[in-house]
């Protein structure tokens, strides 16, 4: 033992004592901070010292002032051995044989359990509504007026070229599956797919805002390149190309909503979306 450590008992004791004093002081401080109205950063720091002081005391105490051993203990084999295993098996089989003699009852018991299992499916069925057609349609109807988030109806002239606005069918503001993006293109930019020539009104096109990959709102639009971005998984959709996915994991175009004008010059839907919006599912194409 070197001379510096001639008093090996003393320095751990002192460390422990100081740690405990720090802990006590921090606990008292915590009470004061709390009484004065609380302050998250101080509370965290004081808790650190209150708990950490005790931690230091225990660790120094356990590591320096207590018997370290190492003590050696035997490991006993875990297995009871083949003889015991056989006896356990025999005991089980003896009991099972007395049961098996009652063939009919065993079969009925099995039947009862199967029936009970089937019966227990019914409460599970109550957990949610039948999917039915709910994934196949949205709240858009023929003549649904297009409204923005503030319930205001929208006219094509309200949008600037390159502008984008999130809209809903009137009466369904905030609807998760009906959320739609209106995008104003420059005159003549609209290149409709065959059959969609009449779906844009006054250079305004409408696409579902629900990403066909995992359902996030396709929230970012870059007017210069006419591209929509999904912030969740980075799918990119080319607006001028019927919102075709050009990169990222999305596999489908954003469904397009056919638009029209009502008598007052406000945008309305010609109909609901002509295909299911949002992510794919097993029977989507049925």
């Amino acid at each position: 033992m070197t001379t510096e450590r001639s008093l090996p008992q003393r320095s751990p004791t002192r460390t422990i004592a100081w740690s405990l004093v720090v802990s006590m002081a921090a606990s008292i401080g915590l009470g004061v901070v709390y009484a004065l109205g609380g302050q998250p950063q101080l509370e965290g720091a004081l808790l650190f010292f209150a708990l950490g002081g005790i931690a230091a005391a225990f660790i120094v105490w356990g590591g320096n002032l207590l018997p370290q051993g190492p003590y050696v203990q035997e490991r006993h084999p875990l297995t009871s051995g083949p003889a015991e295993q056989e006896e356990a098996t025999e005991t089980f089989e003896e009991g099972a044989e007395t049961l098996e003699r009652r063939r009919l009852l065993i079969r009925l018991l099995t039947g009862a359990f199967v029936a009970l299992g089937a019966a227990l499916v019914f409460p599970v069925r109550s957990l949610g509504e039948r999917p039915g057609g709910s994934l196949f349609g949205t709240a858009w109807r023929r003549g649904s007026r297009v409204i923005d988030e503030n319930d205001k109806p929208v006219r094509p002239e309200d949008l600037d070229v390159g502008g984008v606005v999130t809209v809903f069918p009137a009466g369904n503001n905030g609807s998760a599956d009906s959320q739609t993006l209106l995008i104003k293109l420059a005159p003549g930019e609209y290149r409709p797919r065959r059959g969609r020539e009449t779906w844009a009104v006054g250079d305004v096109v409408a696409f579902s805002k629900v990403c066909p990959h995992a359902g996030c709102p396709v929230g970012l639009y870059e007017p210069d390149t006419h591209r929509l971005f999904c912030p969740c998984h980075q799918s990119v959709f080319a607006v001028l190309d019927s919102a075709e996915p050009t990169s990222g994991p999305a596999t489908r175009q954003l469904p397009q909503l056919p638009l029209a004008l009502d008598a007052d010059g406000y945008l309305v839907a010609q109909s609901d979306y002509t295909e299911p919006i949002g992510p794919g599912f097993w029977n989507r194409d049925r």
Binding site: G62, G69, Q73
Partner: peptide, 22 residues
């Protein structure tokens, strides 16, 4: 066939409790 180290009481218990507080 053997296991070696400090005993649960009091050494290991105290160290482990120290770890909890840490």
């Amino acid at each position: 066939d053997t296991v070696e180290g400090p005993k649960l009481w009091p050494t290991y218990a105290m160290k482990s409790l120290g770890l909890f507080f840490a």
